[in-house]
Nucleic acid binder design. Structure first.
Length: 594
RNA sequence: GCGGCUGUGGUCUAGUGGUCAUGACAGAGGCUUCCCAAGCCUCUAACCCGGGUUCGAAUCCCGGCAGCCGCACCA
């Protein structure tokens, strides 16, 4: 006999629908602005969702901020135009679109022109040039052959203005990274001018996606956790690499027809040249560590290297952590890139502030320095307007030329003769103790919302529970204990005052210990266990009549449904240690035979 | 943004141009000494939004919004 038949003879829902239905019903994820009809690309985190998210972010902080020592900063979510001009988002983050006037299809104008004219890249072309190019070449609509309309930009950044009027355009940041790059000099000083150092930020980013679907997988407002690690361009080894050398990565390798997942030791991946260098490899392994710790199924995790044409133009190497989901297949959830010095150079060029760091050599170097000093007080009167240009030429001459009594210089096609007393030169050995460099940046960039969906999906289980020959199902979220929003349920066996009072006392003690408690005395005990299974509460403490006699309570384990009985003294410490992983369930009390 | 399909309590659903709408689960209260969604009673709670056609619209039409599928897009 099958109980709960109505629960499971509904319209067949795929895993995604089941997860989202549960997430909606139990307060994890809600579509935003629901009472006004909702808006695609925005989701609210409900009580359990935001708690889950906070716990996951907290683990991220533990790994990146506490363990790695990359301090966290917080910068505005809105940015001025210069920042995004330098980052390339103002020019490059928009797509030139063009619609067919007949059928209304939209196309990438640059792609059309590239194909038609058989040129490499039309990216640099302005909208006007693209439009002219389409008109002149009479490029037709690829779908219906109709006439194509004008070209317009669709920028993926939300825009606004600072202050009144349109004088100061501003954009909602499309990534948190730029806030860290532009603070480079302050950060370098904070870290006392020594490489490597890292900085992190967890926060909201915004992209005005053309057509976001896939629920929480592609959002217009989303949370990123990013680290920017500034390292020496010459030395990309990692001092702690040994820690992860024998980590096995599921590396996804593409060949002509699809691809294969190949397990490979991190050590070998670097040695065989799959991963560019140790520093990047270390952070790929760290990413794996993090994802497994929060409950991603290791069999559904792989790392894929960006193809050359897929890689951002500045990146030297880039890997994605991809997580497999039931409906969407492999989802990119983390990007781990070597961004080289692109961002620091680019902000240097745009702002005029040099975002570099002085690096001292281990040994000072003795360098022959050849200096030419034209005597402007003599050159000026003699050569008037040409003096400056002549001086520049003189500086480029080799010593043997400068030694001549009359030095010949060619400026703008005319020969000038400069007497040797008008220029001095010295050749000396100077001590150079260091140099100015632009560090390279290793960037792990996490899409937190996508990861949360995957955690929910991987935790979601529908289990057959056999009890007295009857078939029964339970839905259980098998969260890692560390991320479960509610950590312990407190349940009086019956809704009776003599059981309620001690149950409430125990709840209070849990709360004092900092544990998130759900107290529940409504409905039968079995129903309450199932409620807690459904939201992933790892432990349920039950107060029964025996509690009143011998001061013991039971703890039920979510995953095994087994129970132990133990004294209620120090119960809060026991549960705390169970969640922390310090104590094993079987060791915490005597197993109850059922 | 284009095309197709869809939109009913918290969730999943039934439904016909004609009494402010079916059922299940969930939820609240009660009864039942109750360790894995038992039972009984009572209760709460919905036709996506806006127009139109009509005596009458949740039902038909149009537009919007949202979801799904396909195309395009996805630094």
């Amino acid at each position: 006999m099958i109980k709960n038949i109505n629960n499971f003879t509904r319209t067949i829902m795929d895993k995604y629908e089941q997860v989202l239905e549960l997430a909606k019903r139990r307060g994890f994820l809600w579509n935003s602005f629901e009472i006004y009809g909702g808006t695609a690309g925005f989701y609210d985190y409900g009580p359990l969702g935001s708690t889950l998210k906070r716990r996951i972010e907290q683990i991220w902080r533990d790994m990146y901020v506490v363990q790695e020592g990359f301090m966290e900063i917080e910068t505005p979510t809105i940015g001025i135009e210069d920042v995004f001009r330098a980052s390339g988002h103002v020019g490059g983050f928009s797509d030139p679109l063009c619609e067919c006037e007949e059928c209304g299809e939209a196309f990438r104008a640059d792609h059309l022109v590239e194909d038609e004219l058989d040129i490499e890249s039309a990216e640099a072309m302005s909208n006007n040039i693209l439009e002219d190019s389409i008109k002149d070449n009479e490029i037709p609509c690829p779908v219906c052959g109709g006439k194509l309309g004008s070209v317009y930009s669709f920028n993926l950044m939300f825009n606004s203005n600072i202050g009144p009027g349109n004088e100061r355009p501003a954009y909602l940041r499309p990534e948190t990274a730029q806030g860290m790059f532009i603070n480079f000099l302050r950060l370098a000083r904070y870290y006392r001018e020594k490489l490597p150092f890292g900085v992190t930020q967890i926060g909201k980013s915004y992209r005005n996606e053309i057509s976001p679907r896939q629920g929480v997988i592609r959002l217009r407002e989303f949370t990123q956790a990013e680290a920017e690690i500034f390292i020496s361009p010459e030395d990309k080894t990692h001092p702690e690499f040994d820690k992860y050398a024998d980590t096995v990565l599921n590396m996804y390798i593409e060949d002509g027809n699809g691809g294969v997942v190949r397990p490979i030791y991190l050590d070998d991946a670097v040695k065989e040249g799959y991963i560019a260098h140790e520093y990047l490899a270390y952070h790929i392994a760290l990413t794996k560590d993090f994802l497994l710790r929060i409950g991603i199924n290791p069999d559904k995790l792989r790392f894929r290297q960006h193809k050359k044409d897929e890689m951002a133009h500045y990146a030297a190497d880039c890997w994605d952590a991809e997580i497999e989901s039931d409906r969407f297949g492999w989802i990119e959830t983390v990007g781990i890139a070597d961004r080289t010095n692109y961002d620091l150079k680019s902000h240097t060029d745009t702002s005029g502030t040099e975002l570099s760091i002085y690096r001292e050599y281990e040994e000072p170097e003795m360098v022959n320095q050849f200096t030419v000093k034209p005597d402007m007080s003599k050159l000026g009167p003699s050569f008037k307007g040409k003096a400056k240009a002549i001086a520049e030429k003189l500086k480029q001459l080799p010593p043997e030329e400068l030694e001549k009594d009359n030095i010949q210089v060619n400026v703008d096609g005319e020969e000038y003769t400069v007497p040797s007393n008008m220029v001095e030169f010295t050749e000396e050995t100077v001590k150079v103790s260091g140099e100015t460099i632009f560090p390279h940046v290793i960037e792990p960039s996490y899409g937190i919302d996508r990861i949360i969906y995957c955690v929910l999906e991987h935790a979601h289980n529908k289990e057959l529970v056999n009890d007295d020959g009857e078939e029964d199902y339970r839905i259980v979220l098998k969260f890692k204990k560390e991320v479960s929003p509610i950590q312990v349920a407190v349940l009086p066996l019956m809704s009776k005052n003599d059981l309620i009072k001690p149950a409430k006392d125990i709840s209070a003690r849990f709360r004092k210990k900092g544990l998130m408690v759900s107290y529940d005395d409504s409905g039968t005990i079995g129903r309450r266990y199932r409620r807690n299974d459904e939201i992933g509460t790892p432990y349920s403490v039950t107060i029964d009549y025996q509690t009143l006699e011998d001061n013991t309570v039971t703890i039920r384990d979510r995953d095994t449904m087994k129970q132990i009985r133990l004294s209620k003294d120090y119960i809060e410490d026991t549960v705390y240690n169970l969640i922390d992983g310090e104590m094993k369930f079987e060791d915490a009390g005597t197993l109850i035979e059922t």
